[in-house]
Nucleic acid binder design. Structure first.
Lengths: 161, 161
DNA sequence: TATTGTTATACTCTATAACTATA
DNA sequence: TATAGTTATAGAGTATAACAATA
């Protein structure tokens, strides 16, 4: 089924707007907190959850395990997180945010929020925001429920080893 | 002004969904056409416009000039575009898509469209799509009209040299 | 055997600054 | 002086495969 013309326009506007927003946010995080977007997301998740295993931390960040190890290494070297073996499962590593890490998140959060408010929400009514949230929540849940073919391929390839 | 709770949820759903979609699209473009998303976007713009200067090509792709030169170098080496000096303005470089480049775009387009249809649009009604398009078009135009502070800083820095 | 995580490695991408040439 | 584009270079991010250790 080909895309209808209005679908194409919707897709382009969506991609372009999110790219512009992410680009602006990356500049802000780098300037005010010396953090990449992914590092901020990891810290924000930890600030919310307190302590997570590497696998839990990777969930939702769409990341290879080695990539997460790399980023965790940077954050640990910067003193923003600590890693320790889990007592429950000795294969697992528990990641904890440090006071410095919390301080860093709090430092960049106002600027982050200000940009998102100004760029994304300022031209929207409350009803727009609610509709957008409803639509994108449905889309996200749909995507999470039906993984792309690449994941299926990977699972099949792994299964047939 | 802090974000209202429902704004935060909207922002997260939006970011996460677009990230998942882009990740899937990148896998598909790489697998079926050996192209990065940016290379595909550049080729698609050229397929539509036929011939563009480097500056025109950069518009909308949010890219440093050197980054565009790098990507154009890759595409030219792959035989998908050609570059030639402009007769009108000898500083400018005109970029043209080759028959091979067009063929490459056409090769990956069906898979691309299929993924976007399945991941983004399949859980949406026509009205959802229209609303999403309307909202994101407004947001995108707003972002384009009011550039982020970093651009202002750059202009001011340049002006005061 | 499967899972958790790390390491080694190679590659891609991106940004900055310096540079050339034209307007 | 400003603009179009390239180059050199350095750093960051990413992915794959091989690996060790535990479940």
């Amino acid at each position: 089924m080909p895309l209808a013309p209005h679908q194409l326009g919707t897709y382009f506007a969506l991609s372009e707007a999110v790219n512009l927003l992410q680009h602006a946010v990356e500049q802000q995080l780098r300037a005010e907190g010396d953090l990449s977007l992914i590092q901020f997301e990891l810290l924000a998740r930890l600030a919310d959850a307190g302590r997570l295993s590497m696998t839990e931390l990777a969930d939702g960040v769409v990341y290879s395990r080695s990539g997460l190890t790399y980023q965790a290494g940077l954050l640990e070297k910067a003193g923003l997180i600590t890693r320790e073996p889990s007592p429950d499962d000795e294969r697992a590593t528990l990641v904890t945010i440090t006071p410095d890490g919390l301080e860093r998140v709090q430092r960049v959060l106002p600027g982050h929020v200000e940009i998102v408010s100004r760029m994304l929400f300022s031209p929207l009514t409350e009803q727009d925001t609610a509709e957008l949230g409803d639509i994108m929540t449905r889309v996200r849940d749909h995507m999470r429920a039906s993984p792309p073919r690449s994941s299926i391929r990977k699972r099949k390839a792994r299964d047939s080893r």
